[in-house]
């Protein structure tokens, strides 16, 4: 079953981080997931966490050039959430057979593994960035994440000129790379 054109547009919007599209998907699917989690001994907070994680998984998938979704968004999100929630329950040692009403699910195991891998990479980068200390962290975030230019950064941090700021940025970057790869190469 190919998703209809409306859903394709939404997914395209999601891939481009368009808040209108994200909001629509969010609104259409959140309550279903919340009910599912609450009915399976979860809390409101857990429902939000699980749902948002599934949204991230869908976002990652939508960004791939090879992307096709062979089922409805709703089915996909539900399948991912169910898998995520089972994992969470297992970690807490309270494995129970979930009640899942009559929702249809699809096989998502490969996507799920890919998502876990991405999550691990995200965690490594996050840890590496956070253990850099200031001003390195903010300097690198300014340049690589917020895409600010060197002149603006130099002004914000109070360097006398852009070249000095750039020098400092590279020093910080070398430290970050070292931190990142020391974790990354030992296999997450």
């Amino acid at each position: 079953m190919k998703g209809d054109t409306n859903e394709q547009t939404l997914l395209k919007g999601l891939a481009n981080n368009d808040s209108k599209a994200i909001e629509t998907i969010y609104k259409d699917n959140f309550n279903m997931i919340q009910n599912f989690i609450l009915n399976n001994s979860g809390s409101y907070d857990e429902a939000r966490d699980i749902f948002q994680e599934a949204m991230i998984a869908l976002y990652e998938k939508a960004q791939l050039s090879s992307f096709t979704l062979t089922c409805q968004i709703r089915t996909y999100i539900f399948s991912i959430c169910k898998r995520l929630w089972l994992k969470r329950l297992q970690q807490l040692g309270k494995y129970t057979n979930p009640v899942d009403g009559f929702e249809e699910t699809v096989a998502i195991e490969e996507d799920f593994e890919e998502h876990e891998k991405r999550n691990a990479e995200f965690a490594i980068m996050d840890r590496a960035l956070n253990s850099l200390g200031e001003p390195c962290k903010s300097l690198l975030e300014g340049y690589y994440l917020k895409k600010m230019d060197m002149i603006a950064l130099a002004a914000e941090f109070g360097y006398t000129n852009a070249d000095n700021a750039k020098n400092q940025k590279y020093k910080c970057l070398m430290r970050l790379k070292k931190l990142f790869f020391s974790q990354y190469n030992i296999g997450e």
Binding site: N17, S19, I22, E23, Y26, F30, R48, Q52, M55, I56, Y59, E60, Q63, R118, E121, F122, M125, D126, Y144, L145
Partner: peptide, 18 residues
Amino acid sequence: MDLYTSHRNIKCSLHEIH
């Protein structure tokens, strides 16, 4: 780094939308 950035941005958007 790019993946990290987009992951962080989407997290942030989701939070706001919620």
